[in-house]
């Protein structure tokens, strides 16, 4: 499974060259028009749609043999989804894999942006289930396309209005809509809104792939991205009021973990690489186990 060179039964990174060229054209168009959803002819991949086939196709079209790939699912490198996608590319592309954000040249992600700031030259590929931010209120594709074309985005604020009317605050916590370079409104995929501030002015290239819906969109480096809001209900990325119980980080996105059947809980970084790197550097949290303190 972990062959150093790619399996000769497959073309490099699984997709044929023709398909990769088609996907690259869509990616380039997406980069040229930040936030615009570019249709592409999504291919069948040897995994179910829910597993990020859009992201996998984008990654396949980006990979070169020298790449070092990191794959995360909800911030973790070791979940089934992340492991199987990583193995898929190790086998079909023979590329090196890493769990370190700083070492990766391509990072495929589901539902998170790494805590460690990205740098120029890195590519972050998002798996997107539903690319259309207006879908919630306008089911007709012809109409949402027209709204994007004409920047007719009143409806997007209606969604936020409804949130406040119903919950007293903008309750949208994931897939929080953003406006890109003052033009297109974009769904950042189901990342927590906590990650929204990292979308803008990011030195890395950010690519979004939706397999089932056959759309690719992009944020080139250093793009202006603004989370939609109201003057009197400004966007709030809502930081947790805990520190990480393992590494003590105070500014990272935390998962709540039940630690025993008495209902004891702890809060730990959802970004496992970030947490480990901090612990390796000697940072400690409230519940740092003794063996880690050694």
């Amino acid at each position: 499974m972990n062959a150093p060179h790619h399996d000769p039964d497959y073309n490099f990174a699984y997709l044929d060259e023709q398909t990769k060229r088609m996907i690259r054209r869509a990616i380039l168009k997406g980069i040229a028009v930040p936030g615009y959803q570019v249709p592409f002819a999504s291919r069948e991949m040897p995994m179910p749609y829910g597993w990020g086939t859009g992201g996998v196709q984008v990654t396949a079209a980006c990979l070169v043999p020298e790449d070092r790939l990191k794959v995360i699912d909800q911030g973790a490198d070791d979940t089934t989804n992340a492991v199987s996608i990583r193995r898929f590319f190790q086998r079909t592309a023979g590329v090196a894999a890493t769990e370190k954000t700083t070492e990766a040249s391509v990072i495929q992600t589901r539902h998170r942006i790494p805590e460690t700031p990205l740098t120029e030259g890195q590519i972050l590929v998002y798996q997107v289930p539903i690319p259309e931010p207006l879908r919630f209120l306008e089911p007709r594709e012809s109409e949402t396309r027209r709204m994007h074309a004409l920047a007719d985005y009143g409806l997007m604020h209606v969604k936020l209005y409804e949130d406040i009317a119903r919950h007293g605050a903008i309750a949208t916590a994931y897939a929080y809509p953003v406006e890109v370079e003052g033009r297109y409104v974009m769904d950042p995929s189901p990342i927590p809104k906590f990650d929204n501030p990292k979308l803008g002015d990011n030195p890395a290239i950010q690519l979004f792939g939706a397999g089932r819906e056959q759309r690719i969109y992009a944020l080139p480096p250093y793009t202006a991205v603004r989370s939609l809001d109201f003057e009197d209900y400004p966007f709030d990325p809502s930081k947790a009021d805990h520190d990480c119980d393992l590494c003590g980080a105070s500014g990272s996105y935390l998962d709540e973990v039940i630690t025993d059947d008495q209902g004891s809980r702890m809060f730990v970084c959802s970004d496992t690489d970030y947490c480990e790197t901090r612990r390796d550097a000697g940072h400690r949290g409230r519940f740092s186990p003794p063996e880690v303190q050694a």
Binding site: G154, H157, V158, Y161, E162, R166, D232
Partner: peptide
């Protein structure tokens, strides 16, 4: 599928109203 207030507010938001309290 949208509340009465949201229905009335939509045109305001479409032309740039961004103050929830004022829209309401």
């Amino acid at each position: 599928g949208v509340s009465a207030g949201g229905n009335v507010g939509e045109r305001l938001m479409a032309v740039g109203a961004r103050n929830y309290g004022a829209i309401r």
